[in-house]
Design a protein around this nucleic acid. Sequence first.
DNA 1: ATAAATTTGTAGCAATGGCTACACTCTGTA
DNA 2: TACAGAGTGTAGCCATTGCTACAAATTTAT
Lengths: 147, 147
Amino acid sequence: MPNRPNPFAKTRRDHADETAEDYVEAIADIEMASGSCRVKDLSERMQVSHVTVTRILSRLSDAGLVAREPYGPVGLTPRGLEMAAASRTRHETVVAFLERIGVSNATAEHDAEGMEHHASKETLEAMRRYLRHDGSAMTEEDAGNRQ
Amino acid sequence: MPNRPNPFAKTRRDHADETAEDYVEAIADIEMASGSCRVKDLSERMQVSHVTVTRILSRLSDAGLVAREPYGPVGLTPRGLEMAAASRTRHETVVAFLERIGVSNATAEHDAEGMEHHASKETLEAMRRYLRHDGSAMTEEDAGNRQ
DNA sequence: ATAAATTTGTAGCAATGGCTACACTCTGTA
DNA sequence: TACAGAGTGTAGCCATTGCTACAAATTTAT
């Protein structure tokens, strides 16, 4: 018997859900930054072809997260907005946490993008607790001086 | 323009590589724990059908990570062993780190499974630095008392 | 107002990872 | 030894996410 029973399991499902969150988050970001979101914006952001974006948007539209009309801009439904807000909060928690332990902003943004989908409620709470109670940013030097 | 340029990008590729690492790590674990690894052990561990395991093993065998013969046990090639060792180290770092900030062992194991694939070298180093320099385990109570 | 350029949609292919159903091999025991 | 049951393999289906190539629409410029 494996000594680590099956902490795995679900990890390998949910890829489609992660995609949904990433897209919804990106749409909210882009709308916020430039006023409206187009397929092109998403294909650049996600670094995939516009074809891939179109197909995924169509799935998200069926799922009731995205509002879409041919050749038009991409919008979020109320449910999409909800998901975007939750994703954003979680994303910001992970980024802030990584920076706090000394990771550069660029790396924190990059790693958070992947990690955020796997941080459970409990882990996110631990991160927030850490952010609340350890007020100082930790640089490499700080880390050396701490004890 | 999005304010977050494209920290995304690769995030959505590499799923196959993550699978490879997960399987190789699992094989090493199971061999360690029970002496030999069978398809059945993996299908239980990963909670997927034996069919899925077989197909993935065949891909990993083609990739030179896994040694395989029909109806026989599953082994790792030298390259597979290398990958398993690296994965294990990284996994243990993430688990230890999560526990250190107050996450329960069960949750740490679970979250690490997904997060470890997205922790860059820089982030892993920050975690190890934190583990080295902050010797005490942090419980929820500790967190409250710290400042 | 037209032509050119950009954007979006559609068709159709590939790889990955799920599955069920069915066939085959292996093992252990009657 | 022979058979039952457990373990594997194979066929073939589906969904997701990539892609290129080509077609249609929209926007921009002339």
